[in-house]
Amino acid sequence: MTPLPFAPLSSGPLLAGAVLATVASLWLLLPNGRDTASIRWLGSLLGLAALAAFIAAGRRLGGLGEEAVFLIVSLVAVISAAATIVSRSPVYAAIWFALSLAGVAGVLLVLGAQFLGVATIVVYAGAILVMFLFVLMLAQPAGLAPYDRVSNEPFLSALAGAVLLGVLSLSIGRLSAGPATCCEPPSRTTASPSTATPSATTGEPAPAAGDTASGPAAGMTATAVDPLAENHVARLGGELFGRHLVAVEAAGVLLLVALIGAIAVVSRGEAALAGDTTTTRSAAGRSATR
């Protein structure tokens, strides 16, 4: 296999331009009390330019279909995420976030995480986001609040985020396929028999069958065909309830504690509000409101 044609800093100026465009775009688009249509258009154009620079700096995938699908779902995820943090209305922010979750689920599906893609939709968009919307309906004052149309230090925040993004992108671009011995997958011994068995019986994934059945030494290979793809959910469940059983129990306890804690905070908070709202708390609230 030929090594990837890989120049570590070849996309440096492109990434720098993308970071600068991201700063300017976020600074223009974040709510700042002076929204006019022209500023929004300029910010959106700069954001699209930043996205185009990131796409141009990205690596080409193998097949055209995979590349197109990955491009579409990641664009949906990223554009909706940007719209989430720049939209004035929190309801619209939540709905943009749901669209971003759909994009993230698509990215996870492209990456071969079938269970996690569906679980993201079910748990996040189905449960958590609906909870957010419930709280918004309970707590949102009528109309757009003034604090939704200003931001805390939008320029410095956009600069910080874009600098982080630039550093991360640089270090991601410098990744190279290291020696195969440096990162032995820990579950290789457990994964290999279960990989070999269905491919030997069905014989359906022809290029993968030769690699994975050739022994445990071929554990790192066959990443073009995902080694986690066969019997994905069953093997994920086996891994989860096998090696990580204690963690699953701990997560269950955490869910129970969070449930009880939420109920306790609600009931005690309402009792406290009904009790002494006259003296200290309302004074503190008034001074905080001012």
Partner: peptide, 21 residues
């Protein structure tokens, strides 16, 4: 070595994750 084939996918997905973060 066959891992180089999935390196572009890894980098693109990591970039998407970095942008979201």
């Amino acid at each position: 070595m066959n891992t180089a084939q999935s390196l572009p996918l890894l980098q693109n997905a990591l970039t998407v994750g970095a942008i979201l973060f």
